[in-house]
């Protein structure tokens, strides 16, 4: 029971790191980016290549995956995404689906369609026995790391100058511009950071979620659930939504495996109908 809960917690934390960037880009730019998962996949594959082919230690590969995905995000934001902000939602959807298709096919071409594995260092393997419950070391590592990241994000958002500018821009772009805030630069930075976090999530998640070229498509719905259920007005919303989704998913798979996907999708639909703004969002 505790093991299950903990697995769900780790899964949820992971989803949060993967999806929080999407939540910010959606809230900030009102941009529907279905290609968010592609950046996560990039992070995952970078880690695979670094650890298994270049012999880089896992822990050192993580920050590299973050930075590389962030750089990729920045590049795409400045060259392509920046032209999309004013377009209709339909255009944004088409554009980002196009990117997903390209990413999926490109990774398939370069790396093959098979499942990729990351060899974890010894100290992250196996289980710890805490108060009678078996806790996976790697899952503990994920929970701690993602917890720290979530706290860090919250701190940046609430207590730093960048955070207050970001919040101002999310609240009302025009007013923020009027206040002399360089909204374009905030977009770019946020997008890069969000992509970086997704990349980090992809690297961390390869072991738990699996990693193959279809990753962006397979998890798109999960990211979207986190964002829509959590709302886009804070990061606590997506955080709670991630945990809920993670725990529900893991518990569902364990207790009622036959109904698990139905529960997730049905819940999502019900939440969206009852609270189109998201379960944890303040009404605007």
């Amino acid at each position: 029971m505790v093991t299950l809960l903990f697995d769900g917690l780790a899964y949820g934390m992971l989803l949060f790191v993967l999806a929080c960037g999407l939540s910010v880009t959606l809230g900030l730019m009102n941009f529907i980016n279905l290609a968010h998962g592609a950046f996560a996949m990039a992070g995952g594959y970078i880690t695979v290549v670094l650890t298994s082919r270049a012999g880089v230690p896992f822990l050192a590969a993580l920050p590299i995956a973050f930075l590389a995905s962030a750089a990729l995000g920045l590049l795409f934001e400045r060259t392509l995404y920046v032209h999309m902000y004013d377009k209709s939602h339909l255009d944004q959807v088409l554009f980002s689906i196009g990117l997903v298709f390209m990413a999926v096919a490109a990774i398939d071409y370069v790396m093959g369609s098979q499942q990729q594995f990351i060899t974890l260092p010894d100290y992250l393997q196996g289980r710890l026995d805490i108060a009678g419950a078996g806790i996976g070391r790697y899952r503990l590592f994920i929970v701690v790391l993602c917890g720290v990241l979530a706290a860090l994000l919250q701190w940046i958002l609430v207590s730093t100058r960048f955070g207050s500018r970001l919040r101002a821009a999310v609240d009302d772009q025009r007013v923020a511009r009027g206040l002399g805030i360089n909204v374009g630069a905030i977009f770019a930075l946020t997008f890069a950071a969000g992509s970086g976090l997704a990349g980090l999530g992809g690297a961390l998640g390869a072991e738990i979620l699996g990693l193959d070229p279809n990753f962006p498509l397979k998890f798109m719905i999960y990211f979207l659930i986190v964002v829509t259920v959590g709302g886009t007005s804070s990061i606590t919303g997506p955080f709670l939504a991630s945990l809920l989704l993670g725990i529900a998913d893991v518990a569902g798979k364990y207790y009622i495996p036959a109904l698990e996907p139905f529960i997730i999708y049905t819940l999502m639909i019900v939440v969206l109908i009852l609270r189109p703004q998201g379960l944890f969002a303040r009404a605007r």
Binding site: I32, L90, I221, L224, T228, F262, I269, L272, I273
Partner: peptide, 25 residues
């Protein structure tokens, strides 16, 4: 009735969700 309300994003999610649900069934 599910797509009457909400933004493009909610509609998109709900339509996607219904299709996935049927696929799963």
């Amino acid at each position: 009735f599910l797509v009457l309300r909400g933004s493009d994003l909610t509609r998109l999610m709900i339509t996607l969700g219904v299709a996935l649900l049927l696929g799963e069934i």
